Computed example of a mutant assay.
Amino acid sequence: MEAVAARAVLHYVLTGRCGLAVTGLRALELARGDLALLPTGARHRLSAAPGRPGAPPPLDPAGSTALVHELDGPGPPVRLLSARTDRPAPPLAATLPRALVLDRARVEAAPLLRDTLALLAAPGRRPGPGDRLLALRACEAALALAAPRRPDGPHRHTGIGRALAAVETRFAEPWTVVTLAREAGMSRSAFTAAFREAVGTSPARHLTARRIREAARLLAETGLPQSAVPARVGYRSRVGFHLAFRTAYGTTPGEYRAAAPRRPA
Rank of each mutant, 00 (worst) to 15 (best):
T85I: 03
L92H: 01
A109M: 09
G75A: 05
A110S: 15
R87C: 02
A105T: 11
T116I: 12
D72K: 00
L67F: 01
V107I: 04
T116S: 09
A83N: 11
R87N: 04
E70V: 02
A93H: 00
D86G: 04
L92V: 09
G75L: 03
L80F: 03
P88C: 04
R84Q: 14
L71V: 13
P76D: 11
A105D: 15
R87A: 12
L81G: 00
A89W: 11
L100F: 01
L96W: 13
A99I: 11
A109P: 08
P111G: 07
A93I: 08
A105C: 10
P111N: 02
G73P: 07
L113A: 14
T116P: 01
S82K: 10
L71F: 08
P111T: 04
V107R: 12
A94T: 12
S82W: 12
S82H: 07
L112A: 09
L113S: 09
V101S: 14
A94Q: 09
A93V: 05
T95Y: 05
L92K: 00
P74D: 06
P91Y: 13
A94Y: 00
G75H: 07
R98N: 00
A105V: 15
E108M: 07
E108K: 06
P77E: 14
R114P: 08
R106T: 02
H69S: 05
L67D: 07
D86N: 09
V78L: 12
D72C: 02
V101Y: 09
S82P: 02
L67W: 01
D103F: 12
L92M: 14
L102T: 04
